[in-house]
């Protein structure tokens, strides 16, 4: 298990963070409080979704924890240890029906990774405390 990114927690966004995340802070339903919450998240990324790491960092996720699958795959004990360390574990979403008829040329893994980040953001927006 590796921990490739980590940012310090703070009570408010710095001016640099406000500028960096300005394109998402102006979105309807997004707020500084939500951005701070994202900054405190520890998100686990299974190896097959590793393309998501770049987008989680860009989103401002506090810590991204990558799980490296051994030759035996994910053992039950490993998965338990892994999930205990993270607030949110990216799930490998099913490929939607729209793609089932044709073989994809770009990586299935890249698509799954990006959709898993989309699911996370959807989850965060729908579970945020009322302000």
């Amino acid at each position: 298990m590796t921990q490739p990114s980590s940012t310090p927690k703070s009570a408010s966004l710095s001016s640099s963070e406000i500028e960096k995340f300005s394109r998402q802070l102006i979105l309807k339903g997004w707020s500084a409080a939500l951005q701070l919450r994202i900054g405190e998240l520890v998100v686990g990324v299974p190896e097959e979704l590793s393309f998501a790491t770049e987008y989680l960092r860009a989103l401002g996720v506090g810590q991204v924890v990558s799980a490296e699958r051994s030759t035996e795959g994910y053992t039950e004990n490993y998965t338990k240890q892994f999930t205990e360390k993270v607030d949110y574990l990216l799930q490998c979403p099913p490929i939607p029906a729209a793609d089932s008829a044709t073989e994809r040329l770009t990586s299935q893994g890249s698509l799954r990774a990006l959709l898993s980040v989309s699911h996370l953001i959807d989850h965060l927006l729908n579970s945020r405390p009322k302000e």
């Binding site: 102006i26 698509l111 990006l114 953001i121």
Partner: peptide, 25 residues
């Protein structure tokens, strides 16, 4: 558009991925 209306990064990522898919086809 995105300067005025904002953008979720991964939305642009998914659209870019499909552009690559179209081009490769």
């Amino acid at each position: 558009g995105c300067r005025a209306q904002g953008i979720v990064g991964v939305v642009a990522g998914i659209v870019g991925l499909e552009q690559a898919e179209f081009a490769l086809r």
